[in-house]
């Protein structure tokens, strides 16, 4: 909370100075992440986009490429409460949400918060838990509140769940149901680092744990202000039409069994707003929407049997759809 400009809230639009602040803060976070995760700037960027768009991030990849490291780095960079839940097959829903226990002293039930009560929750290997436990987490993500024994507890903002999962082919995993995947704003794959980045990693990670040297570069209050700035980014009517056209096209595609939901459209536009703000703009351009479409939509779609038999992934189908959807009429009304 070092240098936050006074916000001119109520004006309903993001000012240039706000955007400067946003760019500065997000730049610091990215720099911080890159100290630990080398050579993956686009992943870091997407993580911040999801944070500012008030979504949740699903990181999917094979073990050992830095999924957990990324979530922990992001959490460490922001001075806020962080919890990590290691999902295992025997994890119970109450471990996530919390449980009411009887206090012998006061002779009352008192609520003991679960792992979900934090600004940033790292759900590690989420697909190793039973569907019941997964559901408990996902309800919290959507509602941003926890109801236990009739009492409702609100979660603090910002609230970001970064879940990691292994590809479903891995042993001992439960696939996330599509309804639950839909609650994640974006999915990202880490991918293997390039050679140079891997060498640099060997250098830095063998000397000491870089996470331990990491200092927070911002705090929860500032992030809340940034979220407010993002909310005020303008989305012109043609851009809205374009986003809707994209999701509509996924519903009509013969290659997809399940298209994108209206929630997906919502997530897409919100993510585009965050992306635009990070690019220093107070308006969204179609490129923002287009650039985020794969990350935001792909994990929600189900290919048809024919498509999956012929080895066509949803990403390929989605890229085709994006190429086929024309820009909305360019003229302003």
């Amino acid at each position: 909370m070092t240098s936050v400009h006074e916000q001119t809230s109520g004006a309903g639009r993001a000012e240039g100075s706000d955007l400067d602040t946003l760019a500065r803060v997000t730049g610091r976070i990215r720099a911080s992440i890159e100290k630990v995760i080398e050579g993956k700037p686009e992943v870091a960027r997407l993580a911040i986009v999801v944070l500012l768009a008030e979504g949740h991030l699903l990181i999917e990849d094979v073990p050992g490429v830095g999924k957990t490291m990324l979530s922990k780095t992001l959490a460490r960079s922001i001075d806020c409460s962080v919890r990590r839940i290691q999902f295992t097959p025997d994890l119970l829903p109450s471990d996530v949400t919390g449980v009411s226990v009887f206090n012998q002293d006061t002779r009352e039930f008192e609520f003991r918060p679960g792992g979900i009560f934090a600004n940033i929750v790292v759900g590690d290997e989420i697909n190793r838990a039973s569907p019941k436990t997964q559901s408990a987490l996902l309800e919290c993500m959507e509602e941003r509140q926890v109801t236990v024994d009739g009492s409702t507890y609100h979660l603090d903002a910002p609230f970001l769940v970064i879940a990691t999962q292994n590809p479903i082919e891995m042993e001992g995993t439960y696939a996330l149901p599509e309804a639950q995947r839909d609650r994640f704003m974006a999915r990202v794959s880490m991918g293997y680092p390039v050679e140079a980045a891997e060498i640099a990693m060997l250098d830095s990670h063998t000397r000491s744990n870089p996470l331990e040297d990491l200092e927070p570069v911002t705090d929860a209050g500032e992030i809340r202000k940034l979220i407010d700035i993002v909310n005020r980014v303008h989305v012109a009517e043609p851009v809205q039409r374009y986003a809707v056209a994209l999701t509509t096209a996924t519903r009509r595609s013969p290659e997809l069994m399940l298209g994108a939901s209206p929630r997906a459209t919502l997530h897409l536009v919100r993510a585009a707003k965050a992306y635009a703000a990070m690019a220093g703009r107070d308006y969204v351009i179609p490129d923002d929407v287009q650039g985020l479409a794969v990350q935001v939509l792909a994990h929600r779609l189900l290919p048809t049997v024919e498509a999956s038999m012929s080895g066509r992934t949803t990403e390929v189908a989605l890229n085709q759809i994006i190429a086929g959807v024309a820009m909305p009429e360019s003229r302003r009304g």
């Binding site: 989305v235 809205q240 056209a245 509509t248 009509r252 759809i321």
Partner: peptide, 13 residues
């Protein structure tokens, strides 16, 4: 035309 008719009511915003 191939990708479907234009959407009449945006309102996403």
């Amino acid at each position: 035309a191939a990708s479907g008719p234009a959407i009449g009511e945006p309102g996403v915003d």
